[in-house]
């Protein structure tokens, strides 16, 4: 069989690029989070390490690397190490199916700016996101600490409950688009010029709330409630294993922001971009930039919410998930179905 070296090289470069970009964005999200928190609380935020405090993430990372690594004596050593590794791996895996841009033409080859255009992209994302809870569960459980255990129980039940509503919000979206491939969804939005958020506003709000819960972000950060569980599942962790847990949260935030931009906000599409009279390669690059700007807006939104709303109580969280979001998601599906039926006749 003929081996297509160009294809392999292209994919390796693309995977490396996507990974590096996710890591850098996550790194600077920690800086951004502190800056946003500071500014919203009428402070300045980090400004000592480098200009505007831009070297702060490096300083934090360096600190975490040099910290002493402690593995509790009563813990399950294998699972204790597996926990943060799994959290990190899973966080990085989702980025594979997100179309970061349209196609580039390099030396006669057409290069797609998507690592894998699988036709079940959304299903893949669901599968990987549900795996994410295992990192937290294993980490919390293997620490052999009651606070960590409580936290992992919370995280597990929270993520499972919110996945349902999230899935149903997405089913309504699938009914509209008729495709599970993320690339198709973006191209449809590009061709019609109507972003899915205008077609599915209710579905978007449900998806947004659920992605807050899925990424363990405030106001749903019960799993790491500092004041009642001392940090929860990463209570016993130190050094870079703690860093992995914290980092995974930021990567998750980046990926779900990118996902929301892709599914509901047209991905790399912006009105007027296709009618520019420039070469298709430049259009593609501009489209990728547009996607990143959308993603960064969502990341800012995540932070903005975190520094506004206090944490939900556990029973409120469960009631919101099961009694409100799931019925509303079902209603949204019903309306969407009725609307499609009405249009067909």
């Amino acid at each position: 069989m003929q081996v297509d070296w160009f294809f392999i090289l292209e994919k390796v470069l693309l995977i490396t690029g996507v990974l590096i970009i996710s890591l850098v964005v996550a790194m600077y999200s920690t800086w951004g989070e502190r800056k946003v928190a500071g500014i919203m609380q009428d402070r300045l935020g980090p400004n000592r390490a480098g200009p505007l405090g831009l070297l702060q993430p490096l300083a934090d990372g360096g600190k975490l690397f040099f910290k002493e690594e402690i593995i509790p004596g009563a813990s399950n050593r294998f699972l204790f190490i597996l926990g943060p590794s799994l959290a990190m791996t899973v966080a990085c895996m989702t980025s594979a199916v997100i179309p970061w841009g349209d196609t580039l033409t390099i030396a006669g080859h057409t290069v797609s700016l998507q690592v894998a255009d699988v036709n079940i992209g959304i299903l893949y994302i669901f599968g990987v996101v549900s795996l994410g809870v295992y990192g937290i569960m294993l980490g919390g459980w293997s620490s052999n600490n009651k606070f960590s255990l409580l936290s992992s129980i919370r995280a597990a039940s929270q993520i499972i409950s919110y996945e349902l509503a999230m899935g149903m919000a997405l089913i309504a979206l699938l009914m509209v688009t008729g495709s599970l491939s993320l690339k198709d969804i973006v191209e449809q939005q590009r061709q019609s010029g109507v972003w899915n958020v205008f077609v599915q506003p209710l579905g978007f709000i449900i998806f947004l709330i659920c992605s807050f819960a899925e990424t363990n972000r405030s106001p749903f950060d019960l799993a790491e409630a500092e004041n009642e569980l001392n940090g929860g599942y990463h209570l016993e962790y130190s050094s870079m294993k703690l860093g992995f847990f914290l980092f995974a949260e930021y990567i998750n935030m980046f990926i779900s922001s990118a996902l929301m931009s892709t599914l509901y906000f047209g991905g790399y599409h912006i009105w007027g971009l296709d009618s520019l009279h420039v070469s298709p390669n430049i259009v593609t690059i501009l489209g990728t930039l547009v996607l990143f700007i959308k993603t960064i807006c969502f990341i800012f939104f995540f932070m903005w919410v975190r520094w506004t709303i206090p944490r939900f109580r556990y029973d409120q969280l469960m009631r919101l998930g099961w009694n409100y979001l799931i019925p509303i998601a079902l209603l949204n599906m019903l309306i969407t179905g009725g609307w499609i039926l009405w249009h067909q006749h």
Partner: peptide, 27 residues
């Protein structure tokens, strides 16, 4: 009110206004 969304929106407007306020920090 049980949906919390209107109250959350109100709160977010308040935090957004604080972005543009003068910071009292003395470096």
């Amino acid at each position: 009110e049980k949906m919390y969304l209107p109250a959350i929106g109100k709160g977010m407007v308040i935090t957004f206004k604080h972005i543009f306020q003068k910071k009292p920090t003395v470096s």
